[in-house]
Design a protein around this nucleic acid. Structure first.
Length: 308
DNA sequence: AAGGAACGCAACCGCCCCGTC
DNA sequence: AGACGGGGCGGTTGCGTTCCT
């Protein structure tokens, strides 16, 4: 069959991560940046497989992650996007930069699926998504958009990684429309992962939080650790572009940005909502409401269908 | 208060894609 | 051109927590 699993070696630890492991992983990534996951276990001494390290980072330790309490707006977006994209959680997550694909997937499976089912059977819901869920999907359209999106992201990435560029450039992405595409946002590429609080500060906070909450179980302490990380991540990044981001967010969706508890510097979000604004669509600006954006997409799908 | 059921979520597994040699 | 390895992704599982009886 295929290759043997990467984690079937003896001595590879599985199960919940301990705060100590989190600290080791984070401090390593602080120092070297994410990537080259294969080398992480050997260089850090962690008894974890590379995949586990990557997953832990992307789903849990990465700064800017918002956890729990999905807002109604987020719910709607997920439903919309799931309708349009199917179970492409990474792609969906790229439009909700504060959420991980795993989080969205879990939320879909545990909440939204039931909710929609209930609404469809009971016809009691007020969500227009119920009808949207039964709408034909202009999938080919999205496929092409995603392809373009990905290519743009790759181009931007290669530009950004060129030797003369500074190491940390996610802040620059705010003003650089060419680096905005975020189909691969949930990945651990340097575009979104290298700008966070200083190592000392992060680790200090992490340790502090941990010391204040001595381990009862590894799981419980992971939650403590997570909170610490989210705190520092938010504190360090929100100030830079949070206001700008939330304005865009608000204008895009009519959200009350406060309810979204913006934490990160993910201006890619607003940009990613109009992934091709700078490509082929002249009038799709960052101010465009989602309903209009969707309408445009659907309309254009219809146009293309007609033209083929 | 105790036991069981249901729920939620972190983490694992396995497949696939892509880059490199 | 094909083999190989690393990384990404979606599906699934296992376990801790919460709710219900």
């Amino acid at each position: 069959m295929g290759r043997p699993p990467c984690c079937d070696k003896e001595g590879v630890k599985k199960g919940p991560w301990t705060p100590e492991e989190d600290i080791i992983l984070v401090s390593f990534i602080q120092e070297h940046g994410p990537g080259n996951w294969r080398a992480v276990p050997t260089k850090t001494g962690l008894s974890r497989c590379s995949k586990s390290c990557r997953l832990r980072w992307t789903n849990y330790l990465r700064p800017g992650i918002k956890r729990g309490n999905f807002t109604e707006q987020e719910e709607k977006m997920i439903i919309h996007l799931q309708d349009l994209l199917g179970n492409r959680w990474a792609a969906i997550a790229s439009y909700l930069p504060q959420r991980t694909d795993n989080d969205i997937k879990n939320y879909w499976n545990t909440h939204l699926k039931k909710k929609l089912k209930k609404m469809q059977t009971g016809c009691e819901g007020s969500f227009e998504e119920v009808s949207a869920a039964s709408r034909p999907i202009p999938r080919g359209q999205w496929e092409r958009r995603l392809q373009t999106d990905i290519q743009m992201a790759k181009r931007a990435l290669s530009e950004a990684l060129s030797p003369e560029k500074p190491y940390c450039f996610s802040a620059a992405s705010n003003s650089n429309p060419s680096s905005n595409s975020s189909s691969s946002f949930s990945s651990t590429k340097p575009t979104q992962s290298l700008c966070y609080a200083s190592s000392e500060d992060n680790i200090a906070r992490l340790l502090k939080g941990w010391m204040q909450n001595p381990p009862k179980s590894s799981r419980a302490n992971s939650a403590v650790t997570q909170t610490s990380f989210n705190n520092f991540a938010g504190a360090d990044t929100a100030s830079s572009s949070g206001a700008e981001m939330s304005e865009t967010f608000e204008s895009l969706f009519g959200f009350d940005h406060q309810s979204l508890d913006l934490e990160s510097s993910n201006s890619e979000f607003s940009q990613s909502l109009s992934p091709e604004a700078n490509e082929s669509k002249p009038d799709i600006g960052p101010e465009m409401p989602f309903s209009l954006l969707e309408k445009w997409l659907l309309d254009e799908a219809g146009v293309q269908d007609n033209s083929t």
